[in-house]
Simulated assay, not measured.
Amino acid sequence: MTPRARQAIECAEVIVGYDTYLDLIKELLTGKTTIGTGMMQEIDRCQAAVEQAMNGRKVAVISSGDPGVYGMAGLVLELVAKYPASVQPEVAVVPGISAVGAAAAILGAPLMHDFAVISLSDLLTPWEVIRKRVEMAAAGDFVIAIYNPKSIRRTSQIETVREIALQHRNPGTPVGIVHHATRDKENMIISTLDKFTNEHIDMFSLVIIGNSQTYVADGKMVTPRGYRL
């Protein structure tokens, strides 16, 4: 959380978010109205936030990491745009620290060159579209950061990512896995492209697959930018 994000929460009268995220900031919620929902209810809670704002209340919608990176910023803006401009509440998107940025810092410096960020969740994006994006990123030698890599229901997709990447880069390519980045249970492991799916991976994990130049030094992943040393 950035200082600006904390300030926005402290100044808000109403806090809206996924129940799990509200639990993470419960020490900031004293005296505030809270509106929490479970998974798959994103539209409902963002609509509730917009309605609260239209009634003149100062509202903060909470996202994990950065609200503009798989967060709720876009949905809030889409919902506000459905109303006439004369009654639309003012919306400010307050940046946070993205999961990919936090995980990269924990691993070292794996994102020093071009990279692609891809979510393996197929709830809103067809799997064939996701697969195509993985193929193009692997063929282009991008470092690949994977959000939502594996769930109880969705287990085979990360194996498919590994198989696709192995068609384009060395089996020993470093792969970093970070669990609960910046949270209490934070931990990380650095594996290799041919073996990383043997490690524990779940929805609280972020996976970063190095490119052809990525290496490990002193326990840190580094993707060189190309400076002549």
Rank of each mutant, 00 (worst) to 15 (best):
A8D: 11
A8W: 05
A8H: 09
A8N: 12
I9W: 12
C11A: 15
E13T: 01
V14D: 08
G17T: 04
D19W: 08
D19M: 10
Y21A: 04
D23M: 05
L24I: 06
K26V: 11
K26M: 08
L29Q: 02
T30C: 09
G31Q: 02
G31K: 05
K32L: 00
T33V: 13
I35Y: 11
G36I: 07
T37A: 15
G38R: 07
Q41M: 13
E42F: 03
E42T: 05
I43N: 00
R45F: 05
C46H: 09
Q47H: 12
A49G: 13
V50N: 05
E51V: 07
Q52R: 05
R57V: 00
R57F: 04
K58H: 13
K58D: 08
A60W: 06
V61Q: 10
I62G: 00
S63R: 00
S63F: 05
G65N: 09
P67F: 06
P67V: 00
P67C: 04
G68Q: 01
G74T: 09
G74D: 02
L75A: 07
L75S: 08
L79N: 08
Y83A: 05
Y83Q: 04
P84M: 03
A85R: 12
S86C: 06
Q88V: 04
Q88I: 04
P95R: 11
S98D: 10
V100L: 12
A102R: 07
A103P: 10
I106F: 06
G108N: 06
L111W: 08
M112V: 08
H113A: 15
V117W: 11
I118Y: 14
I118N: 15
S119D: 11
W127V: 08
V129Q: 12
I130G: 15
R131I: 02
R133K: 14
E135Q: 14
M136H: 10
M136P: 01
G140R: 14
D141W: 01
I144R: 04
I146E: 04
